[in-house]
Amino acid sequence: MSGIQESIIIRTVVRIMVPFIALFALYVIIHGASGPGGGFQGGVIFGAAIILYAMIYGIEDGKKIMSDKLNRILSSTGLVLYAGTGLLCLVFGGKFLQYNAVPLFPNPAETAAILMDVVEVGIGITVLAVMISLFFDISPPETEGDEMSPEEVEQ
């Protein structure tokens, strides 16, 4: 594990690739209504980008980006977005997730497209947070020996 993390090639490639993977994930989420993809797949890809970063730069650096508190907040925010959109449709007299009942825009199809994207983003946020917290929980804690050895050599 430490051999991979010290390689300059892997560190540089990961640093360059992570933003592009994240951008592709956003494309998959937004494009999900009219093609292959959707909230779940996009969330998984976005989570994989941050998991990749945490694998190479260490769990501690990964937790600086996605702390446990942020994970908890995000995984419930996505659920609130999804359920809130569904309940909004109930409030305006439609069925659960019956988008065209909401009088947001004059054109019901436009409203449906916007609310569908909100639902997809909610799914994506929850899946992203849950995937990352799964990785943080399963991955072994970094051993004391690997972390301490450079400092001990310097001392």
Binding site: G37, F40, M131
Partner: peptide
């Protein structure tokens, strides 16, 4: 759509989680 999910979850994240558990 299923292929997309299979490639992202099956070949990507699940492998990482399995390797993390194997460690």
């Amino acid at each position: 759509d299923v292929a997309f999910t299979e490639a992202a979850v099956g070949a990507g994240v699940t492998t990482v989680l399995f390797i993390a558990a194997l460690a």
